[in-house]
Design a protein around this nucleic acid. Structure first.
Length: 966
RNA sequence: GCCCGGGUGGCGGAAUGGCAGACGCGGGGGGCUUAAACCCCCCUUCUCUUACAAGGGAGUAUGGGUUCGAGUCCCAUCCCGGGCACCA
């Protein structure tokens, strides 16, 4: 027995009366797995050396390529894990282990996203303090995950609720708070540089007065207006059911909260906001340099929602009314304007005659929930303000209406309506009998399609139209004294000409608009990071110095948010932190002597910690920096050695997680990372260079005739129907969940099969990116495979090794090398399902040989164990030890193949006639085309199939196939 | 409505434009066993001819197309999943 297996004897608990003493089953697997998990932990096998800092071991780093593999870290929810959760964790572990075996210094760790609403909601439900609860949940998840045998560096497992961690979350907040965005240099800069620029006049002050003539208050206003984190009084998403406000991204299309599904109302409040919109262009452009799935990039592009157009200024009695349009070229067709009910100019534009109607309309609009308001099938509503605006291009007086189909949150909250070319404007015009001037010539097909006689030029008559003409056509009726678009055909030409005219005449400007809004960053909750901000006697925010960090969350007896009716949109939120007067009211010396301050009582949102946690994995114990610059550069610096601004962005080498974070987490994290990059704290300009979205493991659920879910494990199948307790039940497919009674836990799998079998099943059941149903019934296949592997290596009765150092047959050797080649590339491409299929194929062949000769050749056994190591590491370690090795095989080289052995002596050509295989022809490898062709045409089977006909054409693809065309 | 994915045996799924269904589950048959379980071996897309052996035909959602050759590429349609949605 090998040195490392001498001290543990897995046979002790593995035997039972009927099966061989050393059958590889769950009991034996448990012994082996626990032994190796203990040993990995004791030896610190997966502790990755850093080049510098507290975890620095420079000698171990030099000369090795690095790889940073990252999982989206979990919320430590109270219900623990089901078998769907670890899919990604297993995949990254397999990949990380594979890469270690190809020489990489691999960093792989897992932390916990333990602040935020889920944890707090759970705590409220159980009545236990969130910290107690969270820590218990983390402990339970750690236990469940440890049994999986994940090769994580435990030293780096941070939780966002650790005081050492959120100290730096607060620090990063202050970095953002103390920065401004320089539009010219296109980057964030320290706020002190803005003050300097105002002072020396290189940047004009907002009010145009010299800096030294600004008083303290004016200076402060000028500075605060540019900060990347700022307080704003703005309409926010207020969710009384949760007692907090939410980010736009956290509100569903139905106008309800993502978490809890409570109604959400618009309410104006003073809140922390992050100026993510300043990064809109870079967040968009840098997507091109990321190795992400295209659909995810697309979702981010759509969310950022860049559109090019122009601002057009209309004069009204109440002042300038600006609109954003993507089609400034259609300005001649603007026959009315519409402003949102929330538009600040509504009152000023409304004449006294119309005031009652407008006010009534606004009240109705504000009480409508989002779903009603966004239903585009609903008939358009609106009221006239009584005021006219002047169309700058032709001087026409056009009416200004208020309507809720115009949204305050996009553009300027006002539009110029061009009813002939926009379906919404068209509907509105028809509803209220407004003019619909034609400005583009539809093609004849359009008239045909709409059952209309062809209309041309001045004869185009929109009164007969049933809908707007949305398309390209030559401009008509588009001229004034100073400008004419008539005759132009291309939209981009029209836009160009119009934009030039607008700018020249000082009534507009080509501009870009984004859907992306600034990020609402405060929550009226307890379980989040406190802001490192206090308010002075002027009620102005003041940042705390580094020395006062962390601002610890006070221990409150009552941490629940103020209980409100989910439909109560009147009462203002009162954050839990407001309850502790002792914490809230402080006397601090911030450099000008002790003064009274009031702490910020909101907390940061869920996303704060997940915006940067991967950086803390790099240097988790560093007291001086959030991450040592040399350490960050080593693990995340641009691969091409550049500065990250062009070329390689740098970032995590592989980030694996669910598609549900496509917008929120991934966008926020990119934003913070870019700010930190701009400020010189990071060398990488993107946090996650390569992203991979794993699929979901879903499950079947069954409902009885009354519609109640029944326990899935008790359902049996009979000829395609499903039965439970004598009743036929209906099957459905979806998520695993308690309410559907279809949860399968990893613990059940450990008990029945062991972790290696479980890992293998998850990896084999489909491609990583695909969602698939969980089928406990199928797991046995992977157990049988491992049993066969085990049996080929170890005598089940005696424990004696069956591996001998005799040569394998040439066929088996060839198969081995072919499989090595395939498995290497499968592993590299995260195609673990096909890698496993190849391992099974190899083992099946080995089983034949072992049965024939009574032993297993070492030259097959060794590489096979090495190739199994990433997938089922415990068993591989055990078998490796039994071959006489004393070291872990974690760092053994992954087998390489002999290219010579991939070449066969002969090749079998399939011979097709008109694309159907009719014969096969075996020729020596490398036989020339002419010979192959001659052999094919004289082959008896081919001749028979040809039936006397002569092929018109003979296609021979060397090393592939032959096709005869009749 | 717009934009992405995806439709392959009873099931999960394999197939650089080149032999469709690798590998696993399930099912069928056989071996081992006093017996059963475990394990081992064989068969398993559908269909037709046939006693068998063997052979034929069809087949990757549907209809067209490109190609010597299409699950794979192109066009249209249907269905399923996801994202966005009165975004000017």
């Amino acid at each position: 027995m090998s040195p490392n297996t001498a001290d543990h004897n897995p046979s002790q608990s593995a035997h039972s009366a009927d099966i061989p003493r050393l059958r590889y089953n769950a009991a034996l697997a448990l012994d082996i797995e626990q032994h190796w998990q203990d040993r990995w932990e004791a030896e610190g096998t997966f502790e990755a050396p850093n080049p510098a800092g507290p975890l620095g071991e420079p000698d171990k780093v030099s000369g090795r390529a690095k790889l940073f593999v990252l999982d989206m870290f979990p919320y430590p929810s109270g219900s623990g894990l089901h078998v769907g959760h670890p899919l990604g964790y297993i995949a990254t572990d397999v990949y990380a282990r594979f890469k270690r075996m190809t020489g990489y210094n691999v960093l792989h760790a897992l932390g916990y996203d333990s602040f935020g609403l889920p944890a707090e909601q759970h705590a409220i439900a159980t009545g236990v303090h969130p910290r107690v609860n969270t820590e218990a949940n983390v402990a339970n998840m750690r236990r469940q995950l440890r049994r999986l045998g994940l090769g994580h560096d435990a030293r780096r497992s941070v939780s966002t609720t650790d005081e050492d961690f959120y100290r730096w979350t607060q620090w990063i907040f202050l970095q953002v708070f103390n920065s401004w965005y320089d539009e010219i240099e296109q980057r964030a800069r320290p706020i002190a540089e803005l003050e300097q620029a105002y002072a020396d006049g290189s940047i004009a002050t907002p009010n145009g007065q010299p800096w030294n003539e600004h008083n303290k208050h004016e200076r402060r206003q000028a500075i605060d207006a540019r900060r990347l984190a700022y307080l704003s009084e703005a309409p926010v998403n207020w969710c009384p059911g949760l007692g907090t406000i939410l980010a736009n991204e956290e509100v569903t299309a139905d106008g309800r909260s993502d978490i809890g599904n409570y109604p959400v109302f618009k309410k104006s409040m003073r809140q922390w906001t992050m100026r993510i919109t300043t990064y809109a262009d870079r967040l968009l452009q840098d997507l091109d340099r990321l190795d992400w799935p295209e659909p995810i990039k697309l979702m981010q592009r759509n969310w950022i929602g860049r559109s090019e157009g122009a601002r057009v200024d209309f004069t009204t009695p109440a002042g300038i009314l600006s609109v954003f349009t993507t089609r400034p070229d259609t300005l001649f067709g603007a026959s009315f304007m519409v402003i949102s009910p929330e538009h600040p100019l509504v009152d000023a534009l409304t004449t006294s005659d119309n005031k009652a109607a407008v006010d009534a309309y606004r009240i109705v609009a504000s009480s409508k929930n989002q779903i009603d308001r966004q239903d585009d099938t609903r008939e358009k509503t609106g009221v006239f303000t009584g005021t006219f605006a002047t169309n700058p291009v032709n001087g026409q007086e056009i009416p200004v209406w208020v309507a809720d189909y115009v949204l305050m949150g996009y553009g300027t909250g006002a539009i110029m309506a061009v009813p002939c070319g926009d379906q919404r404007d068209f509907q509105f015009a028809r509803r209220f009998n407004l003019a619909v001037p034609a400005i583009q010539q539809p093609p004849s097909q359009w008239f045909t399609a709409h059952d209309l006689e062809q209309q041309n030029g001045d004869g185009v008559d929109t009164s007969t139209w049933s809908e707007a003409f949305v398309g390209d056509g030559a401009y008509i009726n588009s001229s004034s004294a100073s400008l004419s678009l008539n005759g132009l055909v291309e939209v981009h030409e029209g836009v160009k000409v119009m934009n030039a005219w607008l700018e020249e005449n000082d009534c507009g400007l080509a501009t870009v608009n984004f859907k992306l809004r600034d990020w609402l960053f405060s929550r009226q909750r307890y379980w989040g990071e406190p802001f490192p901000i206090v308010y002075d006697e002027d009620d102005q925010p003041v940042s705390l110095p580094d020395s006062m960090l962390p601002v610890l969350l006070p221990q409150l007896e009552d941490f629940k948010p103020q209980a409100l009716d989910p439909n109560d949109d009147i009462t203002d939120p009162i954050p839990p932190l407001a309850r502790s007067t002792q914490w809230r009211e402080v006397v601090l010396d911030l450099g000008d002597g002790p003064k009274k301050y009031r702490r910020e009582i909101n907390v940061m949102p869920q996303w704060a910690g997940s915006c940067w946690y991967e950086l803390r994995y790099l240097d988790p114990t560093n007291k001086e920096f959030f991450v040592d610059p040399a350490v960050e550069k080593y693990w995340m610096g641009p691969a091409d050695g550049g500065d990250g601004k062009t070329g390689h962005t740098g970032g995590v080498d592989l980030y694996v997680g669910g598609v549900e974070h496509a917008v929120l987490h991934l966008l926020y994290a990119r934003f913070w990372h870019k700010v930190l990059f701009d400020l010189g704290h990071l060398s990488s300009s993107e946090p996650f260079h390569r992203l991979f979205n794993q699929g979901y493991i879903q499950a079947f659920a069954y409902r009885d005739p009354r519609g109640q879910p029944v326990t899935s494990t008790d359902v049996e199948e009979r000829d395609g129907t499903y039965w439970h307790a004598g009743e036929e039940v209906q099957r459905e497919y979806g998520k695993m969940g308690k309410s559907l009674k279809n949860i399968v836990t990893p613990d059940e799998m450990y008990d029945e099969y062991g972790a290696d079998t479980f890992r293998l099943y998850e990896m084999s059941s489909g491609p990583l990116e695909a969602s698939r149903p969980w089928n406990t019934r199928d797991v046995i296949g992977m157990q049988r495979f491992l049993q066969r592997v085990w049996r080929n290596m170890v005598d089940e009765d005696t424990g004696a090794s069956r591996v001998v150092d005799t040569p394998a047959t040439p066929e088996l050797r060839k198969l081995l090398h072919r499989m090595i080649e395939g498995i290497r590339s499968d592993m590299d491409g995260l195609r673990f399902n096909t890698a496993i299929a190849k391992l099974i194929e190899l083992n099946n062949a080995l089983t034949q040989e072992a049965a024939a000769t009574g032993s297993t050749p070492l030259e097959i056994a060794s590489p096979m164990i090495q190739m199994l190591a990433p997938l089922c590491p415990h068993m591989a370690e055990e078998l490796w030890g039994r071959l006489g090795h004393s070291q872990t095989l974690t760092f053994e080289p992954f087998p390489s193949f002999d290219a010579q052995l991939l070449i066969d002596d002969t090749f079998e050509y399939p011979v097709q006639i008109n694309g159907k295989v009719r014969s096969r022809l075996v020729v020596p490898t490398g036989t020339d085309l002419a010979t192959v062709q001659a052999l094919v045409l004289s082959d008896p089977k081919v001749l028979a199939a040809l039936g006397g006909q002569t092929p018109k054409k003979v296609v021979v693809v060397p090393g592939r196939m032959v096709n005869l065309v009749l």
